[in-house]
């Protein structure tokens, strides 16, 4: 199982906590999938409501690792301050670092991402950067102190799957020992299985599960796909070829 900053997790599934029809369905999705990490966020607290406290108690009851994010941050300063607030609230050095560079695609801002990653690493954070599959960017993130990389499969919430297989394969080849997580863009379990077949260590999902008609069943479907894809990767798949090759022996065929 993957190890993130010296912490071994029990599952290859990281699951978001937003957009579920109810807290009970969210909890059921975690239970049925066995997801080992829950992503969470921080948002403004209106006076006296204490919605944050109730949510926090529900997440703690799941008994999983918590990965706070800096979702929605568009500048280094926003992301750093949000990370600092999240560390205090969730009592963890883990941070899923998002520095958004484009409003339509929610594409990471690679320049801001590297700068924020360096600042946070220096402050003792363990950074999980939401990045693109750009090899040079990923090298800079590693140089900035990141020991996990989380390239997108496709833009957040699109369900388009793995848009750049070559880029993702290339990344895996260049960082053979670094935990790599597909973060964002997955819509179906088959896409998660594909990520495993490429040798990725985990996937992070939210919309694909939360917006399914039956979120808990979809979460379980993803968990099974991850298991199947990982088994395939470890089994050393055959090489594809262009020409047909009969699987039944030719020798000994009757002459008729």
């Amino acid at each position: 199982m993957p190890v993130f900053y010296e912490t071994e997790v029990t599952s290859r599934l990281m699951l978001g906590t937003a957009q579920y029809p109810s807290p009970a369905i969210l909890a059921d999705a975690f239970r049925r999938s066995g997801a080992g990490i829950a992503t969470v966020s921080v948002r403004r607290e209106a006076g006296g409501e204490r919605a944050g406290q109730a949510f926090w108690e529900m997440i703690r009851a799941l008994g999983v690792h918590v990965l706070p994010n800096t979702a929605g941050c568009h500048s280094v300063r926003e992301a750093v301050t949000t990370a600092q607030m999240a560390r205090e609230l969730f009592e963890t050095n883990w941070i899923k670092l998002e520095v958004i560079g484009h409003a339509d695609t929610l594409q990471p801002d690679p320049f801001g991402l590297v700068e924020a990653a360096r600042i946070l690493t220096d402050e003792g954070f363990e950074v999980f950067p939401y990045c693109t599959e750009d090899l040079v960017l990923c090298e800079r993130l590693v140089a900035a102190g990141c020991r996990v990389l989380m390239p997108w499969g496709a833009p957040i919430g699109t369900g388009l799957g793995l848009n750049n297989i070559y880029g993702l394969r290339s990344l895996r080849a260049h960082f053979p020992d670094l935990p790599l997580v597909i973060d964002a863009g997955l819509g179906l379990p088959s896409q998660a299985a594909h990520a495993m077949e490429l040798g990725y260590d985990a996937v992070l999902l939210n919309t694909a599960v939360a917006r399914a008609g039956d979120p808990a069943a979809m979460a379980e479907g993803f968990a099974r796909a991850l298991e199947a894809g990982r088994l395939a990767f470890e089994a050393d798949p055959m090489e594809p070829r262009d020409m047909a090759a009969p699987s039944t022996p030719v020798f000994g065929r009757a002459k008729l």
Binding site: G16, V42, Q53, N69
Partner: peptide, 10 residues
């Protein structure tokens, strides 16, 4: 002043 609390996130 900004005051934030834990919330759902992806």
């Amino acid at each position: 002043v900004e005051i934030v609390a834990p919330r759902q996130g992806g």
